[in-house]
């Protein structure tokens, strides 16, 4: 592997990790609300969350480009307030990966929360613990394997993201060149052998992440 390949691998891993870290708190909160509460607009929220799963990634990327560009409503405000430029930087990579991984994370975490018997939470409350305390001492520990599996799965999704990322971050060597973007770029420039090498790395990475996710899902809680 060349130094550039290592840089590409490292960029791919840390942007995917940053994206998952960014969406974990709101994703967990939303997943818990979807699993445990009835509220007006719940179905609408479920549909909106799932949207990036079915909308073409390039279309999601275009929406992000319009929102986050210097003239966009969010990007314009960020630029004027903090001087931050988002599009065509590593920040855009993280945002694209976060948006594309969010539905998978919420779905996995929701399933994990639904797997915790509501009854145990109720009994914990009769023992004097408030709802927040019950969440930390009963719900979270019992859902931990499912939660970890969901985190690994959305990390794996982020590792392979292409469509939205190319739209909002473009291919800038060393700055936004994730594995999938680099493979595309290498094929475009006729460097198929090099592209195959990165393809192999991608497969190993994705396989490892999915393997861990499967192991976490399959290992049963003691009952």
């Amino acid at each position: 592997m060349t130094p550039d390949d290592w840089q590409t691998l490292w960029l791919t891993i840390w942007t995917a990790a940053a994206a998952v870290a960014l969406i974990l708190p709101p994703g967990a909160a939303l997943a818990w609300l979807l699993a445990r509460k009835q509220w007006p607009g719940k179905t609408l929220a479920e549909t909106l969350v799932a949207l990036p799963l079915v909308v073409p990634p390039v279309a999601t990327g275009l929406v992000l480009l319009k929102l986050l560009g210097r003239r966009g409503p969010v990007g314009g405000w960020l630029y004027q307030t903090f001087g931050w430029e988002i599009v065509f930087t590593w920040k855009a990579v993280v945002v694209a990966l976060a948006v594309m991984s969010f539905p998978l994370l919420v779905r996995s975490l929701r399933t994990a929360f639904e797997g915790v018997p509501v009854r145990l939470e109720g009994i914990a409350r009769t023992l004097g613990r408030g709802p927040w305390n019950v969440f930390w001492t009963v719900t979270l520990p019992l859902a931990r394997r499912g939660l970890a599996a969901g985190v690994v799965l959305s990390f794996a999704r982020a590792l392979g993201e292409f469509g939205a990322t190319i739209m909002v971050a473009g291919y800038i060597s060393g700055k936004t060149s994730t594995l999938s973007l680099s493979i595309y770029q290498l094929v475009q420039t006729g460097q198929d052998a090099h592209a195959m090498k990165l393809l192999g790395i991608s497969v190993v990475l994705a396989f490892t992440a999915l393997w861990i996710s499967e192991l976490l899902t399959r290992r049963k809680q003691p009952s």
């Binding site: 018997p117 009854r119 145990l120 109720g122 009994i123 914990a124 409350r125 009769t126 023992l127 004097g128 613990r129 408030g130 009963v138 520990p141 019992l142 809680q221 003691p222 009952s223």
Partner: peptide
């Protein structure tokens, strides 16, 4: 009144011990 404020002890039929 919330369950945690009632001081009512409850041993359900399925016992509901915390498995973790």
């Amino acid at each position: 009144l919330a369950p945690e404020k009632r001081h009512v002890g409850y041993v359900p039929q399925d016992l509901a011990l915390f498995p973790h």
